[in-house]
Computed example of a mutant assay.
Amino acid sequence: MTERKTMPALTRHLLLVLVGAVMAFPFYWMVTSGLKTNDEIWQFPPTFWPDAPKWGNFLEAWEAAPFWRYMTNSIGVACAIAFIQVINSGMMAYALTHMKFRLKGLLTAVILLGYMVPSTAVYLPSYIVLAKLNLLDSYAGMILSNCVSVFSIFLIRQAFLQVSHEIVEAGQIDGAGHSRILWTLLIPLVRSSFAVLVLITFIEQYNNYFWPMLITKNPDLQLVSAGLRSFFVEGGAYGLKWPLIMAASSFTIAPLLLLFLLTQKTIMQSVNLSAGVNKG
């Protein structure tokens, strides 16, 4: 009986290891390609490790373009947007789940309907609004135009729906106001969902390309994606210097990998909690 249970578990773990290796391989190939020469990258059959690793490619790529500024811009903008979305998504989700007011159902339906509207459909009106507010070509324009997300509201709303309303009523009986209930009772209970929200929002905004390029023209405001494109055209010589392009791509994703490592435990708790709720 024990052997029957062990074999499926072993098979499952081997399958997960295989899937993980397949998903990690593109990152491995990107990093190792940054250590190769152009000829080694296009060599067939391919080499999985360079004969003489050129570690200087990473330094050369770093010095060829202001990647420090690109990454600082992206991290700062993404952190500000994630912070604001945590606040407004938490307050909106709390109102939709644990407060009573007229037209609550209609407001919820409108928000969920807004989730179906593609982001490109609001680019033109958003651009016009930012222009009238004199926020084009500025950090404030990039941050404020992304500070509200329907997906974030929906995600936190679903997390708050898993919390019993009796907890909220108990807080109200003790004299706690809505703000105290939200920040001291609800958010600690669903902190894993907020960690997922921060991770998703940070990755999305860190890699954002089209909208920041549309509303900013100043090279000093460029984010990582736009900076990589500029480097591809200039420093990468339109793809003729692939080792430098791969090296630049490798160190620009380092903040994303670091963020995932820091939030991995909390995210897994969120997955386990969701699984337990669905099972129940």
Rank of each mutant, 00 (worst) to 15 (best):
E166F: 00
Q158L: 03
P255A: 01
I245E: 00
L135T: 02
F194M: 09
A254Y: 02
Q205M: 10
F194H: 05
F154W: 11
S192H: 13
G227A: 06
A176M: 14
T216D: 05
M246Y: 01
P255D: 07
S249P: 00
I203Y: 10
Y206T: 06
P243M: 06
S179T: 12
V163W: 13
R191L: 12
Y139P: 01
R229E: 07
Y206F: 15
I156H: 13
A140R: 12
S164Y: 07
L186P: 13
I245V: 14
V196L: 15
L223D: 01
A170D: 13
F194G: 06
A254K: 02
E169Y: 05
S164Q: 11
W183K: 08
F202E: 08
M213E: 07
P243Y: 10
S250L: 02
E166D: 15
D220G: 05
L240W: 02
S249M: 05
E169K: 08
R180D: 10
L240I: 00
I153Q: 09
F232K: 01
G141E: 10
L244R: 03
L199M: 13
A140C: 00
N208R: 14
L135C: 05
I253K: 00
L182W: 11
Y209Q: 08
I143E: 05
V168E: 09
V163A: 08
E204M: 07
I245P: 00
A176I: 05
S249Q: 03
Y238R: 03
L136A: 04
P212R: 14
I167Y: 12
W183H: 09
R180H: 14
A159L: 11
G235A: 03
V198N: 01
A159H: 13
L244P: 03
Q162D: 14
I181V: 10
K241H: 04
N146P: 00
A159K: 07
M246Q: 08
Y206W: 11
A159V: 07
L133R: 01
A131E: 08
E234G: 00
N134P: 01
G239Y: 04
L240D: 09
S164C: 11
R229K: 06
L214R: 09
A237Y: 02
P243E: 04
C147W: 12
G141Y: 08
L240T: 06
G236S: 07
L161T: 11
S230P: 00
A226D: 08
H178K: 09
G239E: 06
N134H: 14
L161S: 11
S179W: 15
L223H: 03
L161V: 11
W211V: 01
M213T: 11
S145C: 13
V224S: 04
V233R: 06
I187A: 02
V148K: 03
Y209L: 14
